[in-house]
Simulated scan of single mutants.
Amino acid sequence: MARKEIAPGIGRLSRSQVYARRQLYKGRKTGTAPAKPETAPTKEVQINGTKNGGTRLIPTSKAPRFYPAEDVRKPKQSRKTAKPTKLRDSITPGTVLILLAGRFRGKRVVFLKQLDSGLLLVTGPFKINGVPLRRVNQAYVIGTSTKIDLGDLKIDAKISDAYFVKSEKKRTRSAEEEFFADGKLKEKDPFPETKAADQREVDKAVLSVVKKTEYLAKYLKASWGLSKGEYPHQLVF
């Protein structure tokens, strides 16, 4: 593949694009290296000769010929501590947000709470616009002036960052073999019923409030976008 460069030393493609085009993922090694057997620090050697007869203990690894000119540098210790992400003042529980990135960009969602990682827990609700319980970064949302009174809505403690972690499954075959196995497409794993129940439980309280306000359901269902000549910094949300 001919290398295209914007300038000397600056390529047009990113590292991930080069990784995909050269298909380097096919040669990726996923196995673990075998453990090396432990060797003793010294070994016993037989010394021949009339005057030197007997055995001696010598080190198994040969010492370097020269000592290093400088001491071994110690890694610099970072004194920085992770601080919790500060939530924007305009984002409070019940605030309607506009997603700017991801699969559901342009959708309006309802903010529920901030997780320990700093990400925002939002819901569509799913029955209105198809957006399920998701984690989003507050850098990729627009907070609107529309707010829903959630009252004393309490989110189950189990819906945390660990709730959204996917379990890794080891593949016995390659992705291509699984895709074309027996001439059939690979079947997707069914959605867990427990998570579907959690979605219904959370949306139940949100939907009860949405139905009380006229046109609010249509507002959440409508997608957002910019037309020609519109600029986000000139709009009031």
Rank of each mutant, 00 (worst) to 15 (best):
G130Q: 06
A139M: 07
K212E: 12
L99P: 01
Q114H: 00
L216S: 04
G27P: 02
K80E: 10
V209Y: 15
E177T: 10
E5K: 04
D71A: 09
L235R: 00
T194W: 08
T50L: 12
K76F: 03
G151S: 08
G9C: 09
S145G: 05
P190Y: 01
A217I: 03
P192Q: 13
K228T: 08
K211P: 00
T85Y: 09
E177K: 09
N137C: 02
K83Q: 08
L100R: 02
F180T: 12
D116S: 10
R3I: 14
R103G: 02
T32I: 14
E70Q: 14
D182Q: 14
D198T: 08
P34R: 15
E187M: 08
R15P: 03
K221P: 00
Q138F: 01
N129P: 04
T50V: 09
K166S: 15
F237H: 06
N48G: 07
G94V: 03
V165L: 09
L216A: 07
P190D: 06
A7I: 03
A175M: 10
Q23V: 01
G94R: 00
K195L: 02
Q114F: 05
P68F: 14
I6L: 13
R108N: 08
I142K: 01
K107P: 01
L112F: 02
P75C: 02
I58G: 09
R65A: 05
R173Q: 13
R21W: 06
A139D: 10
T95G: 01
Y19W: 15
A33G: 07
V210R: 05
A205C: 06
V136F: 07
S145W: 14
P8G: 10
F164C: 15
D189C: 13
S167W: 00
K186N: 06
K195A: 04
P132I: 11
Y231R: 10
G183E: 07
I155W: 07
M1P: 14
L153M: 11
I128M: 09
R12W: 13
V209M: 12
I128K: 03
I159K: 03
L185Q: 04
